[in-house]
Amino acid sequence: MLRDRVRLASVSAARAAGAFARGAAAPYHLMKSMAIAPPERLRIAPPDIRTTDSTVADQIYAGYFSFDGKTVQARGVSPFLVAAPSECWRRSLAGFSWLRHLQASDNRAALATAQELVADFLSLPKIPADDPAMEPAVVARRLLSFLSQSPTLLDGADADFYDAFMLALARNARLLWRALAGDGARGADRAFCAIALAEFAVCADTGRKIAPHVSRALSAELDRQILIDGGHVSRNPQVAVDLLLDLLPLRQVIAARGLQTPSAVLRAIDRMMPMLRMLQHGDGSLALFNGMGATALDRLASALAHEDTRGAPPVNAPYAGYQRMEAGDALVIVDAGGPPPFEFSLCAHAGCLSFEYSLGIERVVVNCG
Rank of each mutant, 00 (worst) to 15 (best):
L169K: 06
S150H: 00
D163C: 09
P125D: 06
I127H: 08
A133D: 03
F146T: 00
R174I: 11
A168W: 00
Q149M: 10
L169Y: 00
L175D: 05
A173S: 10
A170F: 03
D183W: 14
P132E: 09
P132N: 11
D163V: 08
P151I: 01
L144A: 12
R142Y: 05
L143S: 06
D158P: 04
F161G: 01
S145H: 06
D183H: 14
A179R: 01
A137M: 14
L143Q: 04
A140R: 01
G182Y: 00
L147K: 02
A179M: 07
L143Y: 02
K126Y: 10
V139G: 06
A140L: 07
S145T: 08
L153I: 01
D183K: 15
F146L: 09
A157E: 03
L143V: 11
P132T: 11
A157M: 07
A173Y: 05
A129Y: 10
L153N: 00
M166N: 06
D160C: 14
P136W: 08
L154T: 02
P151D: 02
L176R: 03
P128W: 13
A164V: 02
P151E: 03
Y162L: 12
M166F: 10
V139L: 11
V139T: 13
V139I: 15
A168S: 08
K126I: 14
R141S: 12
M166L: 12
D130V: 14
V139Q: 06
F146V: 00
D155T: 09
S150R: 08
L154R: 03
R141W: 07
L180P: 05
G182R: 09
Q149L: 07
V138Q: 03
A168T: 04
F146E: 02
L169T: 05
D163Q: 13
A129W: 04
Q149H: 02
L180D: 00
A164I: 05
D155K: 10
N172A: 15
L147H: 01
A159I: 14
D130R: 15
A168E: 05
F161Q: 05
A170E: 01
A157G: 07
R178C: 13
P151G: 08
A129H: 13
D183R: 14
G156W: 02
D130G: 12
D155Q: 13
L167E: 04
Q149W: 00
M134E: 12
L167S: 14
A129F: 13
L180C: 12
A159Y: 08
D183C: 14
A137Q: 09
L175M: 15
L175I: 11
D155S: 14
V139C: 09
M134V: 13
P128F: 12
L143C: 12
M134S: 12
A133F: 05
R141K: 13
F161W: 02
L176S: 04
R171M: 11
A179I: 09
N172P: 07
R174V: 10
P132F: 10
L167R: 14
S145A: 15
E135Q: 15
R178H: 11
D130P: 07
N172T: 09
P128N: 13
D160A: 15
A164C: 12
R171F: 07
A181N: 08
A157Y: 00
D183S: 15
P132V: 11
P136E: 05
A179N: 01
A179T: 09
P128Q: 11
P128S: 15
A137Y: 04
R141H: 11
A164H: 02
L144Y: 03
L176D: 01
